[in-house]
Design a protein around this nucleic acid. Structure first.
Lengths: 257, 257
DNA sequence: GTACGCAACTTGTTGGTACAAGTCCAGCAA
DNA sequence: TTGCTGGACTTGTACCAACAAGTTGCGTAC
């Protein structure tokens, strides 16, 4: 065994195999570094290289003083095409709470509002000059006390004022409905989905481990005339997936009952 | 400088800052490990820890014998809602080629077909028993000689036979149209978007560097009666993003001219 | 002029040591 | 019973040394 080009790669391959075949189930504790040193007859340095490789693949997590553990990737579904449908009775936040409860989790949310100059990412999409003031509404969603997603929405100042979005609290019926009531009816949007490794900042605010990417999608919503909203959702990839339901999916939904 | 909790973290923070502020532009070569050792007065080990951290964040790439370089994240757009629209004249492969050419790149594709027993991931979505034979059609897309995406589509045997998909070559008008002509008209689909770190296998077939996640989306397409297709697209995140265009986006498209 | 080969330089791998820092539990003290 | 402390164990950080392997360019040989 452990016959790959280099020692530590061979050891990593062997442990990876034991994980992917299910021999080492999620949550299982790996042998300690000392035990692995004896087992493979190598130095601690080499063992740590192998473990670091597995950690960066998102397969294991090491905790100082406790050991290394096989990581679990569960996934809560983020419904990109359901959250903001005007024909649904509740806001996206309420939808999140209801869905999580149904799945047996304890959800909670934290809301904040800020007025700030638009950075390029936002200004370009809203088609306004950089540094124009915009309203930022942030929702951080938690599942069982752990951050599940961070959602930032930016609105042009005039839109936010007319729709009453420049207030420091959540809006029960949802911001999309509030905008529609003020005459800004969304008729379509563009979603840009990307993925990247978390920045040191993300590590703090999103509680992501090393080896776990984040999924980011930026939604630019339009009325008939102009863009009125930019929403960026950032999700740790080890506990979320995004689902788009498109076209007529009645046949599918019938099987879900 | 370099005042963080630990030495190597402080060094990593400092270099990361120089990258994110643009002082070190993409493609720039970092100082050599020896130079960094002198500069920070630490051991090579510590320098390598700092560089490894940056590599795993996708910020730099190190090449044996050459040095470390600031990595570039360009992004070619993968149009998830355009590729298979029946009202477009060409197949998704042709659309990819046309779009890439327009952006000034040299695209190419490689096609293969296989008949294989369905694994759980596919069988569940097609609602057939595991190990039932299905047709797999694979398209690997290249940009300037480098892999850009891998697309696997699975079809139930009966559907594939009636639509003439069990042939070892590309289908000019697109498989969706071929299926429609055979009476299997897609009326909707579910897209599941996830992200993960590349497996050793992905490293080979997709040519992804360490520190770069892959974006995966699995599309299950339905006719009025049943699921007839599962397509999985795997994209290296450093050179791709997925775009969904939903609703009425005429106003947006008018600004793109 | 061209091509080859070698020296110098770079990162990759593996070995070793020492101490710091976090976790856990047994055992003692109140 | 409760609470605390200390020791054993674990991973984290930092240092050192040596050689392997890949890259580059200069200089020599043809």
């Amino acid at each position: 065994m452990a016959r790959a080009g280099t020692l530590f790669r061979g050891i990593a391959d062997e442990i990876r195999n034991r994980i992917t075949t299910g021999e080492l189930a999620p949550g299982t504790r790996l042998p300690t570094e000392s035990q692995l040193m004896d087992q493979y007859g190598t130095s601690r340095n080499t063992i740590r290289l192998a473990l670091a490789a597995l950690e960066n693949e998102g397969l294991i997590a090491t905790e100082q003083g406790r050991g290394s553990f096989v990581r679990e990737w569960s996934s809560l579904t983020h419904h990109a095409t359901r959250a903001e449908r005007v024909d649904r009775p509740s806001s996206s936040t309420d939808a999140f709470v209801a869905e999580a409860r149904e799945a047996g989790f304890e959800p909670s949310t934290a809301f904040s509002m800020r007025i700030e100059p638009a950075v390029a990412e936002v200004a370009d999409r809203l088609q306004i000059p950089i540094d124009t003031f915009v309203v930022l509404r942030r929702v951080v969603r938690y599942i069982d006390g752990q951050v599940s997603s961070r959602q930032d929405s930016w609105y042009p100042m005039d839109v936010a004022e007319k729709a009453g979005l420049n207030v420091p609290h959540d809006i029960k019926e949802g911001t999309v409905r509030a905008m529609a009531a003020a005459g800004y009816v969304e008729v379509g949007h563009i979603d840009e989905v990307t993925s990247r490794m978390p920045s040191p900042d993300d590590h703090q605010t999103l509680d992501v481990a090393t080896g776990v990417p984040v999924i980011v999608y930026v939604r630019t919503a339009w009325t008939e005339e102009r863009p009125t909203r930019v929403t960026r959702v950032t999700l740790p990839a080890d506990r979320n997936r995004i689902v788009y339901e498109l076209g007529n999916i009645d046949a599918y939904e019938a099987t879900q009952k």
